Amino acid sequence: MSAQPIRVLIVDDSAVIRGLISKSLEQELDIIVAGTAMNGERALSWMSSHPVDVVILDVEMPVMDGLTALQKIQSDFPDVPVIMASGLTSQGAETTVKALSLGAVGCVAKPQTASAAESIRVLSRELVMMIKAVGAKRKSTVQVVESTVPAKTVSPAPSPTSGQLFQKSIKFYKQPEVLVIGTSTGGPKALAELMPQIPVDFPIPILIVQHMPPGFTEILASHIQKDSGRVTVEAKPNEPLESHKTYVAPGGSHLLIGENNGQKVTLINQAPPEHFCRPSVNPLFRSAAEHYGSATLAVMLTGMGEDGIEGSHDIARAGGTIIAQDEASSVVWGMPAAVVMAGLADKVLPLSEIAAEIKSQCLVRA
């Protein structure tokens, strides 16, 4: 437990939502609701005289909306992470995805249940882990930067057996035939930086799992297409995988790779969540290892938790290549850290260098 609790500011024009969020956090000893505000203007005024570690920000508000407030918070309080709270409307989803691409660290959907108790339970499950992850990082940033060994020199312990490492090194130089990407907290902004650096005519299919609720991932796909110029779609069942195309896992469903008459295709299913996530990175990574083997190139970007670690083991065993984002450039170094600490990462790189490594793997090596 932190020596000092994580101080949260809740910003929403609905007193009901402010109350539900406050109730959902009050049982956590290491989180306190330091204040509430009914719009972005009042939030900024409150922050000017009160310390805060995390802001939970409504998307649609009068006086000053969430997107404007986010940009002002980033300008005036750049080290304070912001979590967006969105209603499940098309306008709310569009604004939320834009906010995430601008740097909001995550989003939660406002509860739609009739029961206040159920609403509190849903909010608690989604919010608490995110607040703890981003709030703890903010509190310890100085100490982490001073004490962390540079990512490229991280020892791969505990590591696979030497035989596994040897087998992997033999297959390391095989030309990749698919790129799979997993990410969560901080992912939309990371993707907004990464994807425009990948050429439009990049010669292999790209499949992405970003933890997001239904209704958001189609908009994320359209943002990625606009940013990158590469055809990007929310994946649908049994679509043939095409080079020069990007597929985003639909919110609420797992995305996998399968085969149909010898053609690699997308598979979508409603199997149980893994690591509390659906879509989960695991099914995508596992299926990539199964169908592409050592021709798999995987990238694990910023995200909390350990989703994707089992699938990463499968890719490593198949001789595929795994790139992990480093700690300093991650919003939360959870998912990539799990890969690094298991000894599965071939490269551990800052976000700014990952695109160049992808291009090197796919365009230079024969």
Rank of each mutant, 00 (worst) to 15 (best):
G92P: 01
M130C: 05
A190C: 03
Q74N: 03
V122F: 13
V265S: 00
D30W: 05
E193S: 11
V105H: 07
V178W: 01
S329V: 03
M212K: 13
K264E: 00
M64K: 14
A43L: 11
V59S: 09
I268Q: 00
A104Y: 10
V122T: 12
C362Y: 02
I83M: 08
A109G: 09
L191S: 09
R278E: 00
Q71F: 02
A355K: 04
L256N: 09
G305M: 07
P283I: 06
V200W: 11
L301K: 07
F285D: 02
Q27W: 08
K245W: 02
G229S: 06
Q263E: 13
V55K: 08
S14E: 06
A15D: 12
A136Y: 11
M1G: 15
D58H: 12
I10T: 10
T217F: 04
P176E: 07
S2G: 04
T161W: 05
V108Y: 10
E146F: 10
Q71N: 14
V52D: 01
V55C: 08
K72G: 02
I354R: 02
Q74F: 05
M47Q: 08
T148P: 03
M1A: 14
V8G: 08
S222P: 04
P81Y: 08
S330D: 03
I257H: 07
A151G: 14
E26T: 09
A3V: 06
D13P: 02
L349H: 10
L351S: 10
E218V: 13
V149R: 13
H244Y: 11
S86G: 10
N39A: 14
L127P: 00
L70Y: 02
P213N: 13
G35D: 01
V364Y: 15
P150H: 11
C107A: 15
A316H: 15
I170R: 15
G87Y: 11
H223W: 04
S243Q: 09
R7W: 00
E177M: 07
R138F: 04
K23N: 13
T113G: 03
E193D: 10
H313L: 12
A289I: 06
I322R: 06
S24W: 03
M84V: 07
I322V: 09
S48R: 15
V332A: 13
A109Q: 14
G303E: 05
R42P: 00
K132P: 00
A15R: 15
V145A: 15
V11Y: 15
P250N: 05
P205I: 04
L165K: 14
L44D: 07
K137H: 10
